[in-house]
Design a protein around this nucleic acid. Sequence first.
RNA 1: CGGGGCGUGGCGCAGUGGUAGCGCACCCGCUUUGGGAGCGGGGGGCCGCAGGUUCGAGUCCUGCCGCCCCGACCA
Length: 564
Amino acid sequence: MRSSQLFGKTLRQAPADAENISHKLLVRAGFIQQIAAGIFSLQPLGNRSITKIRNIIREEMDRVGGQEINMPVVQPRSLWEESGRADTFVPPLARFQDKRERDMVIAPTHEETATVMARAGVTSYRDLPFTIYQIQTKFRDETRPRGGLLRVREFEMKDAYSFDADEEGMDRSFQAMVTAYKRIFKRCGLDVVMVEADSGGIGGKDSNEFVLLTESGEDTILMSTESDYAANGEKASFIKKAFPIGELGEVEEFATPNIKTIEELAKAEDVSKSKTAKAVFYSVNDEIVVVTIRGDYDVNETKLRNVLGGAEPRLATPEEVKAAGLVSGSASAVGLTGMKSVVDDSITMGSNYLAGANKEGFHLRNVNLDRDFKADIIADIAEAKKGYLSPDGKGKLVAKRGIEVGHVFKLGTVYSSKMGANFTDEDGEQKDVMMGCYGIGVGRLLAAAVESNNDDFGMVLPQAIAPYAVYLAGLNLNDSDISDKAEQLYEALQSAGYDVLFDDRDIPAGVKFKDADLIGIPVRIVISSRSLENGGVEVKARTSKDSEIVAESDVLTSVKKLLV
RNA sequence: CGGGGCGUGGCGCAGUGGUAGCGCACCCGCUUUGGGAGCGGGGGGCCGCAGGUUCGAGUCCUGCCGCCCCGACCA
C-alpha cells in the first residue's frame, strides 16, 4: 500500500474525549472513528489489524477442531424466553418490534442460537462431541461504555460453543479451548493470566477469565504471593480468620448514643471489628434482604447475587430501610421476621457479637447465630481483599488491575435442559447435552494489545497484528535514482511476502518518521540520499532506538532477522 | 441511574451582550527535505437543538439532546 493512496489521516492531537492510551493512539493513528458512545467504525489500518487478529483466532480455533459457523444478530425474543434470559440479562437486551409487531432482540451473545443449532443437529451420542464458533457482531446496551475499544456497546466477539455427551468430555473440550486461547493471546503479543471468575449472566458452574494485567484495567484481580491462585475480585475467596467459640453469654442491651458505624462501635467498646456483626440491607426483586457479616469483612455483591439465585441485589435506600421499620445505625437481624436472612460464614467463626438492637441508640452484647437470629442461607459472601490469606493456604493475596480479554465457561446443561437439546446415549437413555462456551472480544483484544505495547511515540505492535509489517520510507523522492530504488524495494519486499506500507508522499522526513512510529509498524526502512551515501538503506526495528545501514542487496536478509 | 465536566471548521482550543477567531490539518504558488518545515496567498462555521430575554445572543435564561470522567452496573 502506498501512503499517498491510503485512506485515513494521522492526527497530531488526540480528541479531547479520549483518555486511555489505546483510545488516543488508535484514533490518532487513524485506526478507528467514534460514531456514538461505545460505537466505532474501523478505518483501513484498524480493519487490517482486526482482520489479522480474526485470522489468528480462526487458525487456533480450527487447530483444536472448531468449526466456523454464523448465527444471526437479530433474533426473536421468544428464543430468550426459552432460556429464561429475556428479562434477566444485564445489561438489558436491546429490543425492537418487526413490521408484524413480533418482539425481536439484538443478540448480546449467542448461547440460545447455538443451543438451537445443536438441538436440531444432535440426536445421538454418535453426533458428539463437536465445537462450533463464529466471529460475529454483538450489541449490549452497556450502562457506561468507556475507554475507546475497551468497553463498547456494539462489538465483535469470537464465541465458541462445545457440545459433549458427558462431563469428562466437556472438560476435555474446555481444556482444548484453554490451550487455544493461550496460543491466541501469545500470538497477539499479550501476556495474559488465567483467573477464576464469576460466570455472571452466562451461567454455568466454572468459568475462567483471561486477563491482561495493566493499571488501566477495570477489573480487580487477586493473586497469591506464593502460589498460582488468581481470581477476579467478584469470585476470589480467602481463608477467613477463625476465633475460638466461647460459652454463649447473655444478651444484654446497652446504650450507644451517636454510634452509627461498625468502626465507631468497635472503638467505643474497645474491641476488634471481628467482634461485631454487621447488618446490611439489600433490595432484591423489591424485597428487603438482611445480610449479616462479621464486622471485619465486607459484602461481595456478586457472591450475594449467586446465593440468592441470580437476582441482582442493590443496597436498600434509606427510605426502604425506614419503611421496613429498621433503625439504620442500630440494625441487626436479631428479632427480624418476614424478611430473608443471609449470613456470611465468617459469623460462624466466632461468637458473642456486638450487634444492633433495632432500637435507636442501642446495641446488644453477646449476640449469636441460631440462638438470637436465624439464617435462611449461610454462605461465603465476603469480599476478598489484598493482604488476606490465599484460599489454597499458600501466601497472601495481592490486588491488581486487569482487562478481561477472554472468558471461558463450563455451562453444563443450563441451556440444553431448558431448551431441549438432548440426545440418546449408548444405553438408550435420553440425556441433556453438556455445553461449554468461550468468548474473546476482538476489538478489546486490539485495544489491550495497544495498552500494553506503546511508548511516547505511539503504538509498538507485534508483527502478528500490526496493519503492515514494514514501513518503507523514501526521502528525496524527486531524485529518480532514489525513487527507482524505493520502487524496486517496495516490489521486492512484497514479493517476499511482507505487508508493506510505502510512504511515497512528498512531505518532510520528520512527518514520515512520526507516522511510522505512531502506527507502530515493526520494521522501518528508509532509503534516501544520505542512506545511499552511507552504503545502502536504513533498517530499524520499532522497538530499537538505532537503525543500521544495510546494502540494498541485503535488505531482505536483514528484514528477515526482524520478522517472521 | 447519581455526581461532575464539556459541546465553536476535520482535530486541539480562544472568544462574558455589539462584524466569529487562533494553532494544526486542507487547497494554490515558491522555497525546502533526517524527527510533525519556511514564506506568500486561499477555502471551509445552522457557535449541539428548540424556545425565551434583548435594538442586538456563541455569550444571558429555560428545556432538551449528545459526549467524556467518577460512582453504581458490567458475557
